[in-house]
Design a protein around this nucleic acid. Structure first.
Lengths: 349, 349
DNA sequence: TAGTCAGATGTGAACGTGAACATTTAATAG
DNA sequence: CTATTAAATGTTCACGTTCACATCTGACTA
């Protein structure tokens, strides 16, 4: 059965447009790139032909000649989490509005090889800028040895941590985040103000800048209130681990309140407590961090610290685009988190 | 202060490699593309030079001459949800392993204009294939009028729904999903087997193929058991709306069990019930859908239907890549969901 | 009226790669 | 040893765009 060959329709190129409009291809190029030196009449004619032909500039040819890919890379890890995902979406949208493409790489492992491989993949795409959503110190350190020549924005709170200069160890880099320390202090202060004295902290895993910042905020606030600071229990962000920690904590209940480094762990811990018949917040007050959409409907509704992840993503792109256009003198305005007081906290019995 | 100009280091190109290896650029090209007709000695020499120079093929030049971008587009909506996000990650990883790039567009609105604009953005990138994670009928319908010439895989359950032929209305398209109807039947059967007779369904919003499929599965199973089917209550996937529905349902408690179309709504409903002092599952049994990671730690732990979103993503890419390579004769194996029985269901009192 | 100059438009080359075709080299058969 | 042929490698061109520079147009000045 003979197949009808679909007459190999080549997409119209800039010369087709030029020919039909009776101008040179360079004039069409000028119209496309918004040059000033074009007579309105000429511009109109060209635009009309573009419409008529449904002409779309060939991105590859542009990239080849300009060495600009109009692509921003995003390197992330654990993006299945609510925060990174939300930031990523905001990044994608903001970039798209500025007519940039986003190519993301989600790291499963965060060892040097994986980071390097992910980066290679992005570099093969000739990305013009990079956003890193991988708030683990080791990922950031991996960059130190790579000598990137493109602007980089990392979404982490390294800059907030004292004694950490890793953010400055490679060029053309900015670090951006919601103020984790301030958020942690708000959460802790809330518990203190309710009258709690024996407060423990369940931290995120070692090596995460977010975890370190939240712990530091907790410690700062406790010390400021003259309260004793006990060692933090180290979790891994998951509800599962939170549940196990909750069971451990039940062994000697020497606290009346917990500040937990994220909502998922707080959920797991709550579950462990409810399981043995404790009543929340009567027996224990719990504060989480992040304010994932489900947190309001946990049982009990979780008091937590809301971060504007979307705003974070938008700002990272704004920063990156500004840098790409040479205006790198920006004021790094702090993004403050917000305490959401709900049913999981109350005065101690 | 005189600035040292960084001697405009041009990245090495294929001719630099060729020159240094003492061969023609075409020979280098052959090495790069794994041609058979290369003497091992020559290949080794070229590879060595590539290593030495740190040469990386210019993607833009390749795309220009081959008209292949090695890029797959992903058009999604509501990707902040757990399922789509997980699928997206799997897609990204699978594509990267096959040396493809992924450019994603996340739709905020799903009207025709937004869908078209998103698609335009991807087409400007000359994507070779497209994955659509936007299980709303209107999005799929929008494609009908667009006459795409590239392979498309949609992640939705349209194909499972009787009387719906929209999946066939545009060419080169596949539809892929976890078997929603089977999952819904499992959930419903579980409640029936526990002894429940008065079971109601809280559905997803109108226009979502997933919502329709889950409702159909519920109805099918209820009818098969000879039980009366009451009209489904329509939600919007959010915990917030779930909470409101929970309050409404409390007005006349004419049911002993609920099958809710996703976990978030189930959470909101549970919260509403617990709020008025009901005990779960003693007073009401609830089954969700999706098995988000938090579901095991809800209070009570939620019985739900697990979908393998990652597998779905991987398969969509496998399907797409196969099609790009011409071998489109694939067996569309069903992906079956799994019922996770937890504490939120029990026999009626 | 001719000269000047800025604005508008055109011309040719270059970006880095792969495809098509041409040529050289090596191997095999007679 | 030569003819034949396949394998290996080389040469030229095209992809679609922007850049650098050249040319043309028209208005204003002296």
């Amino acid at each position: 059965m003979a197949k009808v060959e679909p007459s190999k329709v080549r997409a119209p190129n800039i010369r087709d447009v030029a020919h039909l409009a009776g101008v040179s291809h360079q004039t069409v190029s000028r119209v496309l790139n918004g040059s000033e030196s074009i007579r309105p009449a000429t511009r109109a004619r060209v635009v009309a032909v573009i419409q008529q032909l449904g002409y779309r500039p060939n991105q590859a040819a542009r990239a080849l000649v300009t060495s600009k890919s109009r692509t921003i890379g995003v390197l992330s890890s654990h993006t299945a989490h609510y925060g990174p995902t939300t930031s990523l979406h905001a990044i994608e949208e903001a970039a798209r509005l500025a007519d940039y493409f986003v190519t993301a790489v989600n790291l499963v492992e965060t060892d040097l090889d994986s980071v390097t491989a992910g980066l290679q993949h992005l570099m093969a795409r000739a990305i013009e800028g990079l956003v890193v959503i991988a708030p683990q110190a080791r990922v950031l350190e991996a960059f130190a040895g790579l000598a990137l020549t493109i602007p980089v924005v990392t979404l982490d709170s390294t800059a907030q941590l004292s004694g950490s200069a890793s953010a400055d160890s490679f060029a053309a880099s900015h670090s951006l985040s919601v103020d984790q320390i301030a958020g942690a202090r708000m959460a802790t202060r809330h518990l203190i103000e309710l009258g709690h004295r024996d407060i423990r902290h369940v931290a995120g895993p070692a090596g995460w800048t977010e975890a370190a910042a939240r712990e530091q905020g907790f410690v700062d606030e406790m010390l400021a209130a003259g309260l004793p600071v006990r060692a933090a229990i180290v979790g891994d962000w998951t509800s599962e681990r939170g549940y196990a920690i909750g069971q451990e904590l039940l062994r000697d209940r020497d606290f009346t309140a917990l500040f937990v480094a994220n909502d998922q762990m707080a959920l797991g811990i709550s579950h462990a407590f409810l399981n043995v018949g404790l009543s929340l917040p009567r027996d224990v007050s719990i504060v989480g961090f992040d304010d994932i959409p489900e947190a309001s409907y946990f049982w009990p509704a979780l008091t937590t610290v809301r971060q504007d992840f979307a705003e974070l993503g938008r700002r990272s792109i704004a920063l990156l685009l500004d840098e790409l256009q040479g205006k790198s003198d920006l004021d790094h305005e702090r993004i403050l988190p917000e305490l959401m007081v709900r049913a999981s906290t109350a005065a101690p019995a």
